[in-house]
């Protein structure tokens, strides 16, 4: 599998899209940090001071309410910028990975490689490790950029920001496993991508449902469904870990990481099973 992993790493390393995405993420990060600094007034943080943060603040207010928005901005300039730039890199890596896997499955590349000591499960594992590696590289790039910005603008990039980056990475890794599973099961790249984005959107909705006011029968139903689905969502554990960190509850932080790992393990098991069954090859 080492040979396959090396080749998969080369595949992404030769893709200019990765470098373009990381550059865009860093540029975006720059504007978000700069905008944040401009919003800091003598009376405190005023997100309406710049059009960019005005838009972001109103959107977050609309979805999560003012309490959440205030908490996000109170955490400093790097929390939000890290989340946005990380999300961009993560989405690029997962979309390109799913697309490439399904393309290789449909054109017989996997079948070709698997006429040997590797099977599709090992192939999927190599793809997963490759994705994790490049997610680590892009996250590392974002952290280094944030540290440099902090030093240049006399801002504080504290342990909270670092832990938040690690939480993001952990959630991203579990999402990669979801992508891996859907790539195995779907018959086309389009169906795999659509279902992946669907799962991502669903978990985002489940996350926002926690902040929304339940009203009426449909509201209650949605809340109940969300309460069930949240156990399968990496975003739920990410949220718990962030809360645990900011409210200084180390046990909760460890438990959140353990639960996220257990979810990841469960999905990995499903990936292995899918590789053994009908997801083996496009027939």
């Amino acid at each position: 599998m080492k040979a396959l992993l090396k080749m998969k790493i080369k595949e992404t390393a030769y893709n200019p899209g990765f470098y373009i995405t990381v550059t865009i993420a860093l540029v975006l990060s720059h504007f978000l940090i700069e905008g944040f600094v401009l919003c800091v007034e003598s009376s405190g943080f005023n997100y309406a001071a710049t059009p960019l943060y005005g838009f972001i603040g109103r959107t977050l207010n609309g979805i999560f309410g003012p309490a959440f928005t205030d908490r996000v901005f109170a955490a400093g300039p790097f929390l939000f910028s890290s989340a946005v730039s990380f999300a961009l890199c993560f989405l690029f890596l997962s979309i390109i990975s799913i697309f490439r896997f399904c393309f290789e499955k449909s054109t017989g590349v996997i079948e070709f490689v698997c006429c040997g000591p590797v099977d599709i499960r090992r192939y999927g594992t190599a793809v997963f490790f490759r994705d994790c590696l490049f997610l680590g590289i892009s996250s590392g790039g974002i952290i280094i950029y944030n540290l440099t910005s902090a030093a240049a603008a006399n801002l504080v990039f504290g342990p909270g920001d670092l832990v938040f980056s690690l939480i993001l990475m952990a959630a991203g890794i579990v999402f990669f496993l979801y992508g891996n599973l859907l790539s195995m099961l779907a018959s086309t790249a389009a169906s795999a991508l659509l279902s992946y984005l669907g799962v991502f959107a669903l978990f985002l909705m489940v996350l926002t449902a926690g902040y929304a006011d339940a009203a009426g029968y449909m509201g209650n139903l949605f809340q109940n469904v969300s309460r069930f689905l949240q156990w399968f969502s990496p975003l739920f554990y990410m949220q718990s870990a962030v809360k645990a960190f900011f409210f200084l509850r180390p046990l909760n932080l460890v438990l959140s990481f353990l639960a996220l790992s257990a979810l990841g393990g469960g999905i990995y098991g499903a990936v292995r099973m899918a590789g053994r069954g009908k997801g083996r090859f496009a027939e």
Partner: peptide, 19 residues
Amino acid sequence: RETKLRFGVVPENHPSGFW
């Protein structure tokens, strides 16, 4: 896996998307 190491396969068409 051991048995798979003992044979070689040439498929009908070389996969178009192969690196």
